[in-house]
Design a protein around this nucleic acid. Sequence first.
RNA 1: GCCGGGAUGGCGGAACUGGUAGACGCGCCGGACUCAAAAUCCGGUGGGGUAAAACCCGUGUCGGUUCGACUCCGACUCCCGGCACCA
Length: 886
Amino acid sequence: MTTADPAYRGCRLSRDDMAGYPFKEIEAKWQRYWEENRTFRTPDDIDTSKPKYYVLDMFPYPSGEGLHVGHPEGYTASDIVARYKRMRGYNVLHPIGWDAFGLPAEQYAVRTGTHPKITTERNVARFRTQLKSLGFSYDWEREVNTTDPRYYRWTQWIFKLLFERGLAYQEELPVWWCPELGTTLANEEVIDGKSEVGGFPCVRRPLRQWVLKITAYADALLEGLDDLDWPESTKEMQRNWIGRSEGAEIEFDIEGHAEKLRVFTTRPDTLFGATYMVLAPEHGLVDQLTSPERKAEVDAYRDQAARKSELERAELQKEKTGVFVGAYAINPANGKRIPIYIADYVLASYGTGAIMAVPAQDERDYDFAIAHGLPIVRTVEPPEGFEGGAYTGDGRIINSGFLDGLTVAEAKAKMIEWLEAEGKGRRKVNYKLRDWLFSRQRYWGEPFPILFVDGEPKTVPDDHLPVTLPDLEEFKPSGTPEGPLATARDWIETVDPETGKPARRETNTMPQWAGSCWYYLRYIDPQNDERLVDPEKERYWMPVDLYVGGSEHAVLHLLYARFWHKVLYDAGVVSTPEPFKKLVHQGMILGELEYTTYVRDDGAFVSAASVDGGRDTATGRPVTPKRIAEAEVEKQGDRFVLRADPKIVVDARAHKMSKSRGNVVNPDEIVAKHGADAFRLYEMFMGPLEQVKPWSTTGVEGTHRFLDRVWRLLVDERGSLSSKVAREEPTRDQLRVLHRTIAKVTEDIEALRMNTAIAALMELTNAMYKWDRVPHEAAEKLALLLSPFAPHISEELWSLLGHAESLAYAPWPEADPALLKSDTLEIPVQVNGKMRGRINVPADADQDTVIAIAREDDNVKRHLEGQNVRRAIYVPGRILNFVVGG
RNA sequence: GCCGGGAUGGCGGAACUGGUAGACGCGCCGGACUCAAAAUCCGGUGGGGUAAAACCCGUGUCGGUUCGACUCCGACUCCCGGCACCA
């Protein structure tokens, strides 16, 4: 680092803001210093003998709204760790970039005609300014942007790799088609039959699509989870999403037909109890199996099922509908004829799209059997007194021939053995995970590096990458399943560079997930035009040591990224099987706590306890919610009531921030009013990082006040170092407080407990206010400890304390264990587990001494008076408990 | 319905392996400074009780283990997040 330019040091700190320290000048000054001195630049040629730490933030989508207060929460936590690790001597990689492809920019383009590139540039510029204003220690020279052709060239390169490895294929698939958006959507972008963006109705229709074979990695993705330091809930969500289940595939003969019916079951042990079969309405054999006299009914049912939205199918689940197709299958275990039905409670997309129904051991089958008068044969003996219909627990096998008397687990194994010996079935593992629909009919996404030559797809040669997006005049979705790119004739019609034959380009583009699947690799080597990432650099920096981002990405982004990473690992491009070693989700920040009353149409207040569905339950008349001030309510028992009329219960809760509710907090305003340091500090002080927590305006004022106190402790009215700061040795007591704080802050940062680390710094400051003079050393340590949290003020204090260089690489203070202990201890004394007094004892006092001192305490003495002390339990240094009585 | 997380003062939260419940901050109350206000500084602040103490109650509910439980065990209530006919 270069010596601070006198221009910075001489920066006049204006005194017009009498209310507090001059944070505006300080923050602007240090942001400029860091930028001009490239303080947080992580060089390409690095001393690799030093340990590394890769701290990654989930990069933002640069929306037109700008940053919201949720972004800086995770970003501040990771920045604290990055700054801390630098001071501990690590090489730190702490980058940021832009996930800038996506629907909003395209929709904006449709509305206004503004090219998404323009919108994106504008939004990125705004985000960049906002992030810089918060003092994050990113290496800005490593910024990546998924919409930059130099970046998406490598996204395309990875797609080629997937294609060449047989992991990308085309298929006619029923996909969600949204007429309003004029595009298809992935399953996860459709909620209850409506588009996630916009809430427009969607229908399913078949379309030629690119699909990635993520199912080939299902087991690897499942097993890889075990060793990851990730939130258990997220790992569990991924496990459920993959949905591995073990069982058997069984073949049923069909009476009078050559075809066999294959089903998947996790309960092969119950085969003897299979009394009918069900096909999904979409199943391929339905037409063949339907008898002429049943055809009308079956067709009607299928039509009806096809028209039902997912929502309706889900909501009508109480009633199990279905129709008999007029054919029978033969149960391979007992040779019995069992009827075949179609019913929409069987999903076409899972397993084989057909099931064997065992009503005695499956609730859904039981409901259906009852509704359609089908036989129910128990094959597992329920426990005595069992009242329900289907029994799904363990027990002894009955009515099952050669399985009788076994447990469920034993019978499963034996049945599979039998099926395999008889050639009627086999062991089988099934997954809920489906292959990943990877194409979108949009403009603002990565083009596929694919040419169709003679109707066959082939990849574009590497030296012709990237395939760049053509500039369009018109961004409207064509309204047909062909995307907007279909209108770019000159772009589509091209020549295969390898054969010279005419070729057509793929007009689909990749989904937004593509760019975010591998961006963490590009940060390592962002300018490399020869390779995706230099292998040597990759080996040094990977894996990501800490990844911070929202839990809304718990499944999709994090699963897709792991999938790509594993493919790259198998291809030898990366050196680790998993990309993200430790993962943390920041909790959502809600709006300020609100008190809400309900006002009836006649103007009367209605108690929140008797409001349901927007109506007063007593009179049935409509009510409107009305927000009221905190001063108007008081707590009574476990609820809040109106102060003026305690019969009226008031709702007290914090809501998600939303424009419609008008409770959105704008970070720019907070920074302008209280400064970036106070803002960062407050975001961390609110509570545990992972927890959902409500915003509080007075809370920010509190952290601002704390920084004012720190400033006034060390700086006088003229902006110079206070005369209280003295070149003198700290006393033993001062050292103890100081070193306890060092130990606490260090442990807390390591464990990401930023809230308690800040509390410790506040305690230290409170203690220092009681000192007559502040030893220089103590002031320095305070500045260093505070610097990861509130870097600007800390740098300014550090500089006032006589340092010419930034503290960004100053060694982190070490706690001396010898200084943590005090000479005397305060020991709480209990009698029969109840607190009766406190005594002061020498730190090295033995049990007998402690007991003797305790017996002298007046209050303890009174409780021991005339009592028989049966035991005295002394936990050294912690507590003493007398057990008395008969 | 299933899976995961949670419930502690007026509010956000703290209490690490069972050992002083309520750190720290907000809010509120009182005092100092000021003509006054703001800002700042000092003190108080779970509920009851007392002149002050003592003492009693208190970590969603009920029960258990223990010298001792916010913490461990069992049952339950409510809240938040996710999945949801996955055979």
